[in-house]
């Protein structure tokens, strides 16, 4: 429990040492004190924008997980969907999300919609792929047992393959929690009037580097906190799974 704090303390000490003993100008690398001052001095402004980004992330995570989960279930349940949808999903990964960001802002506007969509785009595939992998890997012995029990296809999916795939689904969800913020902030960089990404772009343009770092610190803390919360919740829910 103490290890993360030691790591952070060492990191800050190193950072401070670099700013104190090298000639790097503060507008390139502000001191830890300056960043702390920015955090404190602009707390209201940062909190308001962090809240916007947080909402975008949570909405994106929710929608992306839901859509990804349904897509995986659909592909697992229907051979037609598997033949048509799955290749499209795999191919879609060849398009860099960065390239889509300006388009989404153009189509959905400067508001929260384009950011949530970006987050959904980023997490959709990992969620679907992990879940689908789990759905396809049901223990063959269990499938045999279910066959001798005259299981219907739908019940087999709902009561056996789905719960058996939940640990794999959880892996996808953990990845999603870690990368959803990337999608949201990416959307904000391209065009927004609020959010931590907007703060960074703005501060960068005005060479308020300390403020930019402050936004970055908040974003990192938010991402780590989200990941740990999701991880803890999944561990609780999937206590039956080995190593879960």
């Amino acid at each position: 429990m103490i290890r993360p704090f030691v790591t952070i303390a060492v990191f800050i000490a190193l950072w401070w040492a670099v700013t104190a003993f090298t000639a790097i100008p503060p507008f390139m690398l502000p001191t830890p004190q300056a960043v702390a001052e920015a955090l404190w001095g602009q707390a209201g402004y940062l909190a308001a924008n962090a809240w916007v980004t947080f909402c975008e992330i949570m909405l994106g995570l929710f929608a992306g997980t839901l859509l990804g989960g349904l897509a995986a279930l659909g592909i697992a349940a229907s051979r037609t969907l598997q033949r048509w949808l799955w290749p499209i999903l795999v191919l879609s990964q060849a398009i860099p999300v960065f390239a889509l960001a300006p388009l989404l802002v153009l189509w959905l506007g400067f508001g929260i919609g384009s950011k949530v969509s970006m987050a959904v785009l980023v997490i959709f595939f990992p969620v679907t792929a992990n879940f689908l992998d789990g759905l396809r890997r049901t223990e063959p012995g269990l499938l045999d047992l279910a066959r001798t029990m005259n299981a219907s296809r739908l019940n087999l999916l709902l009561h056996l393959r789905l719960p058996a795939a939940l640990p794999a689904f959880a892996s996808g969800l953990r990845i999603a929690a870690a990368i959803a913020p990337i999608g949201a902030v990416l959307g904000e960089w391209v065009g927004a009037s609020s959010g931590l990404g907007f703060v960074m772009i703005n501060a960068n343009a005005r060479i308020q580097t300390a403020l930019m770092f402050a936004a970055l610190v908040i974003l990192a803390a938010m991402t780590i906190g989200l990941y740990m919360a999701v991880d803890a919740a999944l561990r609780r829910l999937l206590r039956w799974a080995p190593g879960g």
């Binding site: 269990l142 279910a146 029990m149 005259n150 219907s152 019940n155 009561h159 056996l160 799974a241 080995p242």
Partner: peptide
Amino acid sequence: DLLLPWASALNNVMLGATLRG
């Protein structure tokens, strides 16, 4: 034994009924 790890012993016993709906 092919027991479902997420289900109680009782629910495992009734697996057949569950799967047949």
